[in-house]
Simulated scan of single mutants.
Amino acid sequence: MEWATDILGADFQSCTIETSGADGTMRRATVVRYRPDSLAAGTGKPRTVHGAVLFLHGWSDYFFNKDLARFWARLGYEFYALDMHNHGRNLDEATTGGYVADLADYDAEITMALDIIRADHTAEQPGIALMGHSTGGLVAALWASRHPGSVQYLILNSPWLEMHGNRFGRRAAQAMVAPLARFRPEMVLRLPERGFYFRSISITAEGEWPLDERYRPPFAFPVRAGWLRAVLAGHAKVDRGLELDIPVLVLTSAASANGMVWQESMRRSDAVLDVDVIAARVMALGRSVTLERVEGGLHDVFLSAPKVREDAYARLARWIHGYMETGPLGTQEKGDT
């Protein structure tokens, strides 16, 4: 395994990993880490390194938020991100963008990324937080439920925990997609294309973030039957309860703005998910769950307008100080009195 300068430029490095899942299929993913020159040279390192964080992007997405990495580093955490297979840095002409037949197919690459972090770790306290956005938040929650004890904290940024509406709509969708997913899993479903979220964040439209459209297409990847079945199955598992025994933080926008035409409210709300449905579902995650609803937040609250994301980061920092800097579930670190 060799680290090389990442597409994000100075201070970011990446390496490609290959893993084999339960089905024996080899899959390629990319681990990104934040390594400022001062840290790489052994100077300017925070006096206390509390642990590390691994970030999972959403569907049709990739890791690009440098500010998120810098935020964690300022608080004394080593930051890593994973571009999952069929996404972002792993895309080529042979890949089916965004496709996965079972969300557990991500397990092997997440596990390997965490092994890399532990081998790379310089902190005395090896606490690791798993952080996921949107579909990555669903993946992170499910992974944590299948691997108890492997991470100490879970942070979800607008996690896609349920379909719009309620569980009855999901069950109807499952019934409709099941035969297609069984016999033609990679069949593209004819669904309306909406690029409103991309419009709200991209510097080429209404936003301020430079996105590489090779890695993050404006209208997302085509929705395929097998992928939708996998997501719906994940929602059903959350609905039944994951019983996580680690502290969980969920951040969402305070409001949603859904529709088939652009609305100005999409500049200050979640244009992808129904945040009220998500808020109702978060308590099924575990026994210690904190919900923060960010007024004016976008689907990714850390890509919102400057004042809004300042609020989102303040809420995240407060939770970190309350949970992560004192150890799991508030236990004090060694040497504290």
Rank of each mutant, 00 (worst) to 15 (best):
R28V: 15
L232D: 02
T135D: 09
R216C: 11
A312V: 13
T30Y: 02
A181F: 04
A305S: 14
L316V: 01
P36N: 09
Q332F: 15
L189K: 01
R89Y: 04
L189A: 06
M283V: 12
I128F: 05
T43S: 12
P179T: 09
L228N: 05
L156M: 15
A40C: 10
A220G: 14
T95W: 06
R89A: 13
M84S: 12
D67N: 13
V308K: 01
R27I: 09
H133S: 14
V151L: 03
G137M: 06
H85V: 10
A317R: 08
A104G: 10
L142V: 15
R184N: 03
P217G: 04
E310G: 10
F63Y: 13
S304Y: 06
L154G: 08
E206K: 13
F302I: 12
E186A: 09
W160M: 03
M112A: 07
T30A: 11
D212W: 07
A279F: 14
I17K: 02
Y106T: 00
G51E: 00
S200Q: 11
E124S: 13
W59V: 05
P328N: 03
E295T: 15
A104N: 10
G9E: 08
P217C: 07
D83H: 08
E193C: 04
P148M: 14
V53K: 03
E78S: 04
H133K: 08
R184G: 00
A230R: 03
L244Q: 11
L316K: 00
Q152N: 12
D23M: 06
Y153M: 02
L249W: 11
L103M: 06
S202W: 12
A305E: 09
H50M: 04
L232K: 00
G132L: 03
F168S: 05
D276S: 07
L56F: 13
T96I: 09
F302C: 10
H147S: 03
C15G: 13
